[in-house]
Amino acid sequence: MQQTILSILLENEPGALSRIVGLFSQRAFNIESLTVAPTDDKSLSRITIATSGDHKVIEQITKQVNKLVDVLKIKELTNISHIERELMFVKLNAKTPDARDEIKRTADIFRGQIVDSTNQLYTVQLTGKKDKLNAFIRSIRRQSDIIEIVRSGCVAIARGEKALTA
């Protein structure tokens, strides 16, 4: 079961998001992550959903989402050239100077930034694909205690001329 990323353009109406989420639970589709925000046109929202399933399931998901009256467009991005990113904050225990150095080095390797610090803690900000964020977590776990992690879920956009617009 491969991860599939779906991009959805829908009316920015109250309840529109619940129709999407409800549809997924009602029909037993997976949601790995979901992000939503208004677009430059305030009447529209853009959702990125990471899901999984075989070809038949993805086809059903796409059709069912498209059937919702609030949805203008849906596009599967995983089968075309696209860019995807996720944002993550990781709060780490950095009590000793060694730990602080190690966190900083690892963050550098992953092109992360330390965005907050106290006597005890560092907070690292990292963007990238899911795999990269997972690799950072695996790597840092060996050197430091993870206090807290928050991830945005992925957002994605097609490369080149292709665009999801009303």
């Binding site: 109250p14 309840g15 619940s18 129709r19 409800g22 009602q26 009256v69 609030d70």
Partner: peptide, 14 residues
């Protein structure tokens, strides 16, 4: 009611 009926309507309005 919109929540109660959401999975069983074609659409709903408030």
């Amino acid at each position: 009611m919109l929540g109660c009926s959401r999975p069983i309507v074609k659409h709903s309005y408030t």
